[in-house]
Design a protein around this nucleic acid. Structure first.
Lengths: 150, 150
DNA sequence: TAATTGTTGCAACCCGGTTGCATTTTTGAT
DNA sequence: ATCAAAAATGCAACCGGGTTGCAACAATTA
């Protein structure tokens, strides 16, 4: 296996999380590290297909482990496949936008929401573990072109 | 069919929305009107089973029509079935909480979020149509009892 | 009441995700 | 390095939510 800089990052991350390192896990982690937007299981698998073959089940299991370790977070998608993205100080909890026309799924600026978690956490009716803000509508492209078959 | 007060409400609602009225639609609508928390398709169907039989497909189609007409809103649930609740002035957009232990799905106070939609709508990168705030963790009961098999 | 239109129910299907189990890979101690 | 124990992978089969095609059925309108 080729060990480039990316692989080094991934290796260290796995080590730090106490997760045993396999080629499949490194591969998935590298895809997620390179991603500029959240990815779903199938997209990850397809991105990998050129380099190596990895079973669909394995992708889900790897993602599950990463999630449990806190390395990634999962974002529910109404009806479709769920998305995954890296968790880090530079990538705090933030809202996501999905276009109902083209399906684009992107991150939104966290600014207006930054104080929200604290507001809710002050309630003692619940033990909050995860907050998800999903926004949908039309992206700029789909709004501007008239391709929006309602 | 018995026509009680609830039925009258439902009838009027369908009329106002220009939706042709069938016994199945009235039945589903009555369940939703009586509900004190969001319901999923299966729950609705089971609530109906004692009174009348309604096919699973019909439930989804009826819910789809209601949603298109703006009478109800749909709330995505990560992994599980989606939930539905009435839309009204007294029931504005608000966050929902789901317990990872017992699955309870309830509405949360909208107070801290009231100003959010406006904040986001000010962005012109997107045409916002729907905002969903889903919070998960442990409900008070599951937190307090030690039944929380992690 | 006949014709048109829309709605329902059944079966079959699609897709995201999971489980059981046999095989292969990692790990860790020698 | 090597070998046993433990863990991870891949395959097949499955599960549950949700949808589609189509024939039978209700309900409106004339």
């Amino acid at each position: 296996m080729v060990t480039n800089t990316k692989d080094t990052d991934a290796l260290l991350a796995l080590q730090k999380a106490g997760i045993s390192k396999t080629s499949q896990r490194l591969a998935v982690l590298n895809i997620l590290l390179k991603a500029t937007r959240p990815l779903n299981a199938n997209t990850i698998r397809q991105a990998l297909k050129t380099k190596a073959s990895i079973d669909k089940v394995t992708v889900y299991r790897v993602l599950s482990i990463f999630k449990k370790s806190g390395m990634i977070r999962e974002i529910a998608s109404a009806g479709g496949a769920n998305y995954f993205e890296m968790v880090s100080l530079e990538n705090p909890l933030h809202p996501h936008f999905s276009c109902r026309n083209c399906g684009t799924f992107v991150c939104m600026e966290p600014a207006p929401f930054i104080k929200m978690p604290e507001l809710i956490l002050s309630k003692d009716d619940y033990s909050i573990e995860h907050i998800e803000i999903n926004i949908s509508g039309l992206c700029a492209d789909c709004r501007d072109t008239t391709k929006t078959e309602s």
